[in-house]
Amino acid sequence: MSDVQPSSPGEWKLVWRRFRRDRVALGALVTLGAIVAACFVVEPLLEAVLGHDGSQPIPAAVDVNLNPVGPFSWATYIAPDGVPHRAFLLLGADGPLGRDELLRLLAGGRVSLEIALIATAVALGLGIVLGALAGYYGGVVDAIVSRLTELLMSFPLLLLMIAFGQTVAGRFQDITAHGLFPPGVLSVGVVIGVFCWFYPARLVRALVLSLKQEEFVEAARMIGASDVRIIRQHLAPHLAGPLIVWGTLVASGVIILEASLSVLNVGVRLGTASWGNLLASNWGTLLVFNPADVGVQYPKPPLLMVWPALMLFVTVLALAASGDGLRSALDPKERQ
């Protein structure tokens, strides 16, 4: 007990220290946290305070032309228990059904973020394992993984999605992990993830292919490290940077893809709001796209198009900026 060694901070403490110094990344992370909190915590509180949820149609929030009312409106509706309620619509109503746009936006964000999380986890998991195997072992493994990647990537995604939706999606619709997710979220997340793994797989394969020629891999092999140990301890840290950057990008791409899926009846069912659903119902959809028709039946208020696009944009921006900050904080080469 003579002299106490000054304890050196752990790896993650160092990462956090470097990350914290970066003002932009920190701001982005705070924004992301605020959005997540708004969707997951504030929305249920708002429902309790306002007395209605995002799926409650309010006929009085729609005028004679089925035009929804604008922001800061009050509308009366008869609740299911027969008592008239006055509803306050901060962002106005969402369309001809007169539902609360604010609550739908926040509840939709919850669905979209959950799908993004699940799909990104599935895609990264599959991609890292297959890409690392292909790049490291080469030969038959590489040939199989590469051909599989080419096959899946050159096949029109839309067709696979239609096939999946028409045949098996119904069976997975009700898997909710004991009510943790709304119906359909888990299945859509997994579907998107399963069709998105080839990007990280290609990336990881290319990186591992050039990394395994490096001296430090040779040195590790020379002192008797096993293949698993080389991949996990020596190659994986090099992959973290590019993969985090890619992960933030795919998480946002997934939210957009989810919007396309809703249209094909594979996505989240209509009763559940999501940013994709909100976007698609205002900007038109792929299979039913006729801009000339949109304004004829009832004019869409421009603000309704702005909200989901804005939420999506801010979320993706925050995701990308914090991912970038995390990447440089994690990068062993940017330590000094």
Binding site: S252, I256, A309, L317, A320
Partner: peptide
């Protein structure tokens, strides 16, 4: 650098239709 990274995100942050 930061500005360009942020601007480039427009391509994925916005729905292709929008």
């Amino acid at each position: 650098d930061r500005g360009l990274l942020a601007v480039s995100v427009i391509g994925i942050a916005v729905h292709p239709f929008v």
